[in-house]
């Protein structure tokens, strides 16, 4: 039985459909925690009109598998799904979904946050934003490194 699902896609996704599929036929589940990341219209003081997400096919999937494996070694979780969109996106669009199932909420909350924090600093995705001043590659945030460091 497959327990981890990783999808990199241009297409949008539906939270309800994904969560339903993740916990279907698994009566051990007592908790589902989801994180949904969306496109803001402001970043670092600039108005964001849209963005394009690039990734490193192959390494992206490998790095996400590694991150999920680390989460599994720390918490007793059942199933996970990570969906990350690539290509052109607009403000309010969904970018990323992380969902984790477990028996109790504590494990699922922690694992979901851990996967997201690691994804932010270790998975090879890059955002290029369209702003009124032109397009620019987004700089990595120090706060993301800080968020990851607290897990070590």
């Amino acid at each position: 039985m497959q327990n981890d699902f990783i999808r990199i896609q241009e297409a949008d996704f539906d939270l309800t459909t994904e969560v339903k599929a993740l916990r279907k036929g698994d009566p051990r589940v007592g908790a589902v925690v989801t994180f949904l990341g969306t496109v803001r219209d402001m970043n670092d003081g600039s108005q964001v009109q849209g963005m394009t997400l690039e990734h490193y096919p192959g390494m992206t999937e490998k790095s996400l598998e590694e991150i999920i494996m680390q989460a599994r070694s720390r918490w007793d979780i059942y199933k996970t799904i990570v969906i990350h969109r690539v290509g052109p996106l607009l403000p309010e669009d969904q970018i990323v979904l992380v969902a984790v199932t477990s028996a109790h909420r504590g494990e699922a909350f922690s694992a979901c946050e851990f996967i997201m924090d690691y994804l932010k600093t270790a998975a090879p995705f890059w955002k290029k934003e369209e702003t009124p001043e032109g397009s620019k590659w987004v700089d990595a945030r120090v706060t993301d490194d800080t968020a990851m460091a607290r897990w070590s």
Binding site: G58, M59, S63, L119, A122, A123, W137, A140
Partner: peptide
């Protein structure tokens, strides 16, 4: 070979070496 490495890592024959800026996904 699609795993993050440091500057001091030794190269190996036939390896795929990627250079990129710090990641900004999520």
């Amino acid at each position: 070979n699609q795993e993050m490495v440091s500057d001091s890592t030794s190269l190996v024959e036939g390896a795929e070496i990627a250079f990129f800026p710090p990641v900004t996904g999520g």
